[in-house]
């Protein structure tokens, strides 16, 4: 299947049907002990001769949808993008929010059996927390892109044995919620004390595309810009609110956080809350109206006190 894909992409690049492929590739990196290692990273290919660099494996972790709203890639013509089923949801949200033109996209939908957990640049040796729910007990995956969502579907699954599953994000959250409130408070104080306000979580998030983020404003300064505990709490509360009903749980924010702050706990809580209260799942359907722009008479209003 990868071969068919590569042939097709080469043709499309040559004919000008697409201007660039954003996918996963491998590169050799130089290690301190003189050895060379291979690292899977995003690649940006605009020449047909480069297409053979594409790979699809368990280290294709990064959500490439993020690039679609970045200024640098807007002039690249039609983009062919490698997307995992969970990443596809981010495309749907961007479509809902009228941020991208589906016609400018050629979606390479990947069938997925889970990718590795990465934290602070390190492969954790088990599957990412978000992946567990895509797999049943026998390891069979429900993470598929259907042909009406993707322009081409890649059925090849990552080779190799199943890595250890690791912990499911929902069970992490469950455990966390069992802690008494003082403990939870202390937990977040500890975590947010580490936050540098580098905003890597924001840069990596496909949903954080605002040209002017409220967190950067200085006149007026709505949110303390300094990375002290108060400012950090404010930032993280605002981040959570602005992503409620929009976050698709791709896990990028947590993966890129150089301080290893477990942001997915917050995201998953918001995802669950929105689902419980309004039966809404972000990114499920590109046609649905965004959560915050719909209102039904029977909406739960218990939060108004």
């Amino acid at each position: 299947m990868m071969d068919d894909l590569k042939t097709r992409l080469k043709e499309m690049l040559t004919s000008g049907a697409i201007g660039m492929v954003i996918g996963y590739g491998q590169k050799e990196i130089y290690m301190a002990d003189g050895s060379r290692e291979y690292r899977t990273c995003p690649v940006f290919l605009s020449r047909d001769t480069e297409i053979d660099r594409l790979v699809w494996n368990r280290h294709c972790v990064q959500n490439l949808v993020t690039y679609l709203t970045k200024e640098e890639y807007k002039e690249s013509g039609k983009i062919a993008l490698m997307v995992k089923p969970c990443d596809l949801k981010a495309i749907h949200v961007l479509e809902q929010e009228k941020q991208i033109d589906r016609k400018r996209l050629f979606i390479i939908g990947l069938t997925c059996k889970g990718v590795m957990a990465e934290k602070m640049g390190i492969d954790e040796g088990h599957l990412a927390g978000k992946c567990i729910k895509c797999l049943d007990s026998s390891g069979k995956s429900s993470a598929v892109c259907t042909p009406d969502e993707a322009d081409i579907v890649i059925e090849t699954l990552p080779d190799g044995d199943m890595p250890p599953k690791g912990k499911d994000i929902s069970s992490d959250l469950e455990g966390f919620e069992k802690m008494p409130s003082e403990k939870r408070w202390a937990f977040w104080q500890n975590q947010f004390l580490k936050c540098l306000r580098c905003y890597a979580c924001r840069s990596a998030c496909p949903m954080c595309y605002c040209e002017q983020c409220i967190c950067d404003m200085s006149r007026p300064q709505w949110i303390d810009k300094s990375p002290h505990l108060k400012g950090n709490f404010l930032f993280h509360i605002v981040r959570a609110f602005h992503l409620t009903g929009r976050c698709v749980g791709c896990g990028e924010c947590e993966r890129v956080c150089p301080m290893g702050i477990p942001l997915m706990l917050i995201n998953q809580k918001m995802i669950d809350t929105v689902k419980d209260l309004y039966g809404y799942e972000s990114g499920k359907d590109p046609e649905q109206a965004p959560l915050l722009s719909q209102f039904k008479m029977d909406d739960d209003q218990s939060f108004i006190k």
């Binding site: 690649v43 940006f44 993020t66 580098c198 840069s203 990596a204 150089p258």
Partner: peptide
């Protein structure tokens, strides 16, 4: 190509010294 502008490289760098 690919840089998402996250600033991680500069924040963690021992010689980067820009401030606001």
């Amino acid at each position: 190509l690919g840089c998402i502008g996250c600033g991680t490289c500069t924040y963690l760098c021992p010689t980067c010294h820009c401030f606001d």
